[in-house]
């Protein structure tokens, strides 16, 4: 279980808090979505959850980040990495650049942990299979499509064997085919029991994956709840978020005085 208790965070030199009094619990195997307009604090939340803020980027943090009830304060980043993985939106900047094949790229993290070679190979194969990209193992990671590259980045995190994965707009820079590829793989990952926290603009993606959604506004929770309720809430557009296409379609139809029955 990953929990944030009354967490506030300020970037170095910033005049105001980027995250304010934020409390969230991500239970084992749960998938929680985070939506919000640009600058609402989604990426900051991802950095704080992963431990990179403030360990890597500096700044000041108050409140507590707990993994299975243990306070993570003072733990080094490589220890955090074994509990929580983070995936950024740009697939190219997440690759190590030193691996000749996808297999080596995915194995990069476990090798950093100093694990035995056989264990590294087992974890790497398992991560590739979980995401359905075993066929890419011998390919050059720099020569993949955006969607495939993003999956390789996620596989690299999975091979670290974290129980929680934080994804910061994982499909933002992908074409529709890449988005579908990542969405399908995330769905299968969620079914396999990995807890996911997904910060995303694309409410269609969240509607298909998440059990709960949190709406962020200027670094604080505006409201939260079960996915269908939050994404169908009229207030969503006030926070600069487009509702999922089924909700938008229903509204259009209803505003035309018609009635639409969509499957749940």
């Amino acid at each position: 279980m990953l929990a944030l208790e009354r967490v506030s965070y300020r970037y170095p030199g910033a005049p105001r808090l980027a995250l304010r009094d934020f409390t969230l619990t991500l239970n084992d195997g749960e998938v929680v979505g985070v939506v919000g307009a640009s600058e609402s604090g989604k990426s900051t939340l991802a950095l704080v959850c992963s431990g990179l803020a403030p360990r890597s980027i500096g700044g000041s943090l108050t409140g507590r980040l707990l993994v299975d009830g243990d306070d993570m304060q003072g733990r080094p980043m490589h220890e955090m990495a074994a509990h929580i993985g983070i995936c950024f939106q740009n697939p190219t900047s997440q690759l190590s650049q030193v691996a000749a094949t996808v297999f080596e790229e995915v194995a990069f993290g476990p090798l950093n942990l100093g694990l035995d070679r056989l264990e590294v190979a087992r974890r790497t194969t398992s991560a590739l299979e979980k995401l359905g990209i075993g066929s890419l193992a011998e390919r050059d990671p720099e020569r993949l499509s955006g969607g495939q590259m993003q999956l390789v980045a996620v596989a690299g995190l999975l091979a670290m064997d974290p129980r929680h994965l934080v994804l910061d707009e994982p499909t933002a820079q992908l074409d529709p085919a890449g988005k579908r590829l990542v969405a399908d793989s995330l769905a299968s990952l969620a079914r396999s029991g990995t807890a996911l926290l997904i910060a995303e603009h694309d409410t269609d993606l969240l509607a298909g994956l998440c059990s709960r959604v949190v709406v962020l506004d200027t670094g604080a929770i505006a409201y939260e709840g079960l996915t269908p309720e939050v994404l169908a809430d009229e207030r969503l557009t006030e926070f600069g978020i487009e509702p999922p296409s089924d909700v938008a379609l229903r509204r259009e139809v209803e505003s035309a005085g018609l009635h639409l029955d969509l499957p749940a």
Binding site: L47, S50, L52, R55, S56, I57, P76, M77, H78, A81, A82, G85, I86, F88, N90, S93, Q94, S96, Q97, E104, A107, F108, G109, P110, L111, N112, L113, G114, L115, D116, R117, V120, A121, A153, G156, L157, M160
Partner: peptide
């Protein structure tokens, strides 16, 4: 900047020897 964060998140800053595949 983003790459260095991604590397940290993959245990690159762990002290000691890393294994070789």
């Amino acid at each position: 900047e983003e790459r260095s964060m991604a590397l940290e998140a993959r245990g690159f800053t762990r002290p000691g020897k890393r294994s070789l595949l």
